[in-house]
Amino acid sequence: MVRSNDNITSIENIQQAFRGVDYICSKQIATTLYLAFRLNKPILVEGPAGVGKTDLAKKTASFLNLPLIRLQCYEGLDESKSLYEWKYGKQLLYTQILKDKLNDIVREKNNLAESLEAIHQYDDIFFSPRFLEPRPLLSALQQRKGSVLLIDEIDKSDDEFEAFLLEILSDFQISIPEIGTIAAKSTPYVFLTSNNTRELSDALKRRCLHLFIPFPDAQLERDIINIRVPDLGDSLRFQLVSFIQQIRKLDIKKLPSISETIDWARVLLLLHADCLNMEIVRSTLNVFLKFEDDIAVVNDRLYELTQQATKEGHA
């Protein structure tokens, strides 16, 4: 198993490289990535929705220049959809096409037992890799140059699927009864994300490094906005981030995430706003608040929130 670790020499290096693909990596993220790369361990990423968990895997793929293979988990996901499937159609078609050949083989035999015996010599050809339809997990293991495997929202899958993942995560190999054990050609970098809708099993956690990405602090969020929406003016950026940070302290149903901050920044840019005022905030609240009740709560306190934001923006 070979891994191209050339551009992963130090933690600072990773931070810098990620900046190059438009992703701001906090020290915590960079350190965990570094360890995962070095120890060949999967990373379990947790955190509130929209803080860039999935994006982390995507950016890792583009920074390492490897294909990203994504497996979206859902209730009822099973082996045939995640790992491999036999191509029934193809198998059937081939048996039809090869009917004559099969007849030839059987013709010379005198009785049923002998015919069966004769066919037995060939039955393996219909269960060979040729008839295997690789699904995300298998295809991640088959990549020659390595890959980034993203197992998204693992908490949505069933317990059975989680248990079945264990073999892949610890040994990077899978067992197919008809063929045998298939080991990874080169170890993939594995990311698992979870929104914590249920507790994951200890066995799974034990095999992973754990990374918790919280909402960013103001400084980090400003950096992120700066890199993602570079055309936004400095003072507006300060005000916007300060406003969002205040909102996250309120008691509302769904806190705005980074992706929503970015959306809002883009909207403000489109509207040619150069500073926050009550009017413009009120008309764009629905960009980052997704519940009627939440909008009502913020609307009530709009004045003080905007005041505070503009004040901090100037400071």
């Binding site: 360890l35 947790e46 754990h210």
Partner: peptide, 29 residues
Amino acid sequence: DAAHTLDLVGYEDRDTLKISLAAALAKTP
């Protein structure tokens, strides 16, 4: 895992040490 992490990052930087050990040892918020 924690021992391997230690080999990699060492004791020099307190923050790095803390983050690394946390990644290897503590698995829920």
